[in-house]
């Protein structure tokens, strides 16, 4: 290489280096994550004061929750206190263990020890059909999250879903499930997440949500329409006039328990309560979301309503207020059950 060529090369290298530096600076500026590891939009900075206040509150509740978790048997019987504390939000540090205790997945995991090996499930080749669907969904689950950009986390998610598709081959994997397992994996070890997933599918009947034909989803959409008719009659009528069907906006609400729909910190709070109260709370929070937006929705025609729902995460206002009002809606258990029976009767023929 001649000296002039060498110079040129050096110049080029230097330029490259500079460019690279600029790129890293740029990416530092661009990529901010919130405390849960979600990518923040460039203009949105963390409100430090608000965050500090939240942290202070959380530190206080950490002591309370530590005591509860250490004495779960005793506290789990005190429904009033438990409910109050769950509604106030489970501290992040104890969320994983609390979710396992509330759902009873810790007991199931123990009970299945020696009978079903998680490690055998996720390496099995018995359900190749589900497997190819899972693989295509892995990097499309919480794509804005720091964790799920990495291969290791994606592998964990893959293994839990794969294990489920072997554990229950009849239901197998269905799109939407990845958001549920992904959410659990934020707070649990792989095996714990798997057994909690199993409890959700079995005891919380979520497998009927995802089963061929989506029988439970159909039923819940029917029930939801009745809830709307009874508790938000004006909106119900407006939606009827505009041909808005619940399936157009609420399918992903119910299939992922809002995991794919609302801002992550709010999703966690909803899950805290959902795991304790069950589906009735999802009807309540859905109603609260509609009530907050009732005035606006009543003024919109078909097309704008559907688009409005698409963007619902930006339209829920103060989360605490929303959760509070959801808790205060007195949707009747009896009616919910009656509507379920009605649906079953209609569809038995």
């Amino acid at each position: 290489m001649s000296s002039s060529e060498e110079k040129k090369k050096k110049k080029k290298d230097k330029k490259k280096e500079q460019e690279q530096e600029e790129v890293t600076e740029e990416s530092k500026k661009k990529y901010l994550f919130d405390r849960y590891g979600f990518l923040l939009p460039p203009e949105e900075e963390i409100d430090e004061k608000k965050e500090q206040k939240k942290r202070k509150k959380e530190i206080e509740s950490i002591d309370l929750w530590r005591e509860m978790i250490d004495n779960w048997k005793k506290f789990s019987k005190n429904n009033k206190l438990l409910k109050k504390r769950i509604y106030a939000g489970i501290p992040d540090r104890y969320r994983g263990i609390a979710w396992r205790l509330i759902t009873g997945s810790d007991l199931l995991q123990k009970a299945k020890e020696g009978e079903v090996e998680y490690g055998d499930l996720h390496i099995s080749n018995e359900n190749p059909e589900s497997e190819s669907v899972i693989v295509k969904d892995i990097n499309r689950t919480f794509p804005d999250h720091e964790n799920y950009k990495s291969g290791d986390e994606q592998k964990r998610l893959y293994r839990v879903l794969k294990a489920w598709s072997i554990y229950d081959q009849e239901v197998g994997y269905c799109q939407g499930m990845a958001f549920i397992a992904g959410l659990l994996l934020f707070y649990m070890e792989e095996q714990e997440a798997f057994w909690t997933f199993v409890v959700l599918m079995k005891d919380f009947h979520m497998s009927a949500l995802f089963r061929e034909g989506f029988p439970l989803l159909q039923q819940q959409l029917f029930q939801w329409d009745k809830v709307l008719k009874k508790y938000a009659t004006k909106l119900y009528k407006h939606f009827q006039n505009e041909n808005i069907m619940p399936s157009m906006y609420a399918s992903s609400w119910f299939l992922t328990i809002f995991a794919r729909v609302l801002p992550f910190p709010l999703v966690l709070r909803i899950w805290d309560i959902y795991l304790y109260e069950g589906m009735i709370f999802i009807f309540r929070i859905s109603l609260a979301i509609l009530k907050v937006n009732q005035k606006k929705l009543l003024s919109l025609p078909f097309e704008e309503i559907v688009l409005y729902f698409k963007d619902i995460e930006t339209k829920i206002g103060d989360w605490e207020k929303l959760l509070k009002s959801a808790g205060s809606f007195n949707i009747s258990y009896k009616l919910i059950e009656k509507w379920a029976d009605e649906w079953c009767l209609q569809n038995q023929k």
């Binding site: 499309r140 689950t141 399918s251 299939l255 992922t256 794919r260 688009l307 698409k310």
Partner: peptide, 13 residues
């Protein structure tokens, strides 16, 4: 490149 998988149906106009 990071689009989420669609669950149910989605709408745009």
């Amino acid at each position: 490149i990071n689009s989420q998988s669609t669950v149910g149906v989605d709408f745009l106009s």
